[in-house]
Design a binder for these strands. Structure first.
Lengths: 331, 331
DNA sequence: TTGAAAGCGCTACCAC
DNA sequence: GTGGTAGCGCTTTCAA
């Protein structure tokens, strides 16, 4: 930039303004500056710009599992909205580890990102992340996992309803011994569990504690949990799995045990990940519109950035949608 | 930081040095500074630090498709290596679009990332990206896709060998009409095609141009391409697919057409993505050790950052490994 | 062992 | 229209 000024015999200021199309700089000099900048392959230094502007045009996205295509789709949704506003996205993968997550949020804040979008891995009763977040002025939007009792912007589905919907579907398919592979103790995991219980009650089916088996969020844990479940008598004839990866693992377990899906055991997941349709037995699931979640969250955050975020929390609930495939069709 | 200085009645410098454990600051003041910093929840401002240090401790990762778990695993590998060196990773998703990719590289450079890892979406004959890259001093490592004739650090597999290995496996399974669903015209796509042709020659099988059908990189394109292939006579009895997503789409096409995998058509992919094992018919594939690619690339880049990158290009080839599952077992 | 000065590359605010 | 001055938050260099 200094080079350009020297070469053209104008001041550094003129160059700075010309480059940004600032109010009134004569067309002539503006053109000369731009041309010269091109020749010299001038590129603005965002670090310096950010320092003085107190604004990086960066937003941070913290998600628990990049390998889960549900979150990858969210990331795409976010990027899609941000791009035209010339914001960029920094992704962190917390690996479902609350401690890692806090460190990453910390780092993002130190990097002065303008805003945060977080799918939190915190267990439902831990508010550490939020006391951290509240120390800084960085606006943030929570997605997918809504911690109870924390006033914050949120975009996601109603997990209670999701759990109920999935479980009711199994009921309607004639299942009478319905089990649940439970996810992590996040808001999401607990909500889905509540929905499961509520559906059982509504259907007048008894609830058995042994039919609630803890898994984690991935297919490996789904496999193990399902194996435990299959060892029980009576054997469940329908299982609502925390999410699609867990359901995928569970399906493998059922098939490996020489049983049939859905005849012996019907399976339903949640998330409608991209490959659900391509599995051994195409997986019934609850769609959460992952792309839409990302987009809405990004929009909400951008609004907040503009209005300096003083208004009250927005809350966007996306309707869960049942997607019926072979894994639950017992007729 | 200024606050700390005031509160303690020492100079700003003392604080700066104390915080970083600089050579000699009396233990006493150091302790006082650290304690006070804690109380005030002081956090360093990386933007400012980066500006003066001319170093951001950020590395940029540009990949063509986050939804493809092959790349998601690479990202994890990179993060795993970077983390202990307190480097952080900025991910961009180029969506297989060369133009987008160049823009993203540009942005990353403007953000002064210390290094780049790129799985390029450029077609094999386009060197635009590299003239761009060479303008700046930012060290970079290419992964997965090696453009011919460009001296650069590279980590990936030998795609010619991969293609040959996959195709030979089909030959050994008794396939005689072997087709190829071709990927994008990137170095990877072309290499795999070459390997396919070479294997046919080695096996003494004739090569039919109609058996080479262009797809892209995703399952949707695999589905379409496979449908075209199935309309042909003779119908192929074995297909080497550019990658696993394409193979997944192809599998859907075959099954939707009422044919059997592998009896009527054997299928093999490449990448060994995480869910290959969970598909309708578990998919045979060529493993590329995605995690290892990410790790090696990150290590190579870090070495370069330390040595200010003046040495000659490193080239790390990872052995492709055949993974046989049901989709090719015809015995 | 501590502190003052200068500057990283850029922009806002005011004079000319 | 154009240009100087000051400063963003931090670090390196050198003097006290």
């Amino acid at each position: 930039m200094k080079d350009i000024a020297n070469r053209l015999g104008v001041s550094l200021m003129t160059v700075s303004k010309a480059l940004r199309g600032h109010s009134d700089i004569s067309e002539a000099t503006r053109a000369r500056v731009l041309e010269c900048a091109n020749e010299l392959h001038y590129r603005p230094n965002w670090v310096a710009r950010s320092l003085v502007l107190q604004r990086t045009n960066l937003i941070g996205l913290v998600i628990p599992d990049l390998m889960h295509s549900f979150f990858a789709e969210i990331a795409r949704g976010v990027a899609r909205v941000l791009e035209p506003h010339s914001y960029q996205m920094v992704i962190f993968n917390s690996d479902e580890n609350p401690q890692t997550e806090m460190t990453q949020v910390q780092m993002l804040v130190e990097r002065s990102v303008d805003g945060l979008i977080i799918a939190s891995a915190q267990s439902a009763d831990n508010h550490g992340l939020f006391t951290l977040l509240n120390r800084y002025h960085t606006p943030f939007v929570l997605i997918d996992r809504e911690p109870p009792g924390v006033p914050a912007h949120f975009v996601g589905v109603d997990d209670d309803e999701l759990g109920e919907m999935a479980t009711m579907h199994l009921v309607e398919q004639g299942c009478r011994h319905i089990a649940h592979l439970q996810g992590p103790p996040s808001a999401t995991g607990l909500g889905r569990l509540r929905g499961y219980k509520r559906a059982l009650k509504r259907a007048g089916l008894g609830q058995r504690d042994e039919f609630i088996v803890p898994a984690r969020h991935d297919d490996a844990s789904g496999y193990q949990a399902m194996m435990k479940l299959l060892a029980q008598r009576p054997r469940p004839d329908g299982v609502f799995c925390y999410n699609d990866p867990v359901a995928a693992g569970a399906m493998k377990a059922v098939l490996d045990s020489g049983l049939d899906v859905p005849r012996d055991v019907a399976l339903i997941g949640a998330g409608n990940v991209h490959y659900s349709d391509l599995m051994r037995v195409p997986l019934s699931t609850i769609d959460q519109s992952s792309g839409a979640i990302g987009e809405s969250a990004a929009k909400l955050l951008l609004e907040n950035l503009r209005s300096s975020g003083a208004e009250q929390p927005g809350r966007i609930l996306i309707e869960p949608k049942l997607v019926v495939r072979a894994s639950t069709q017992r007729s």
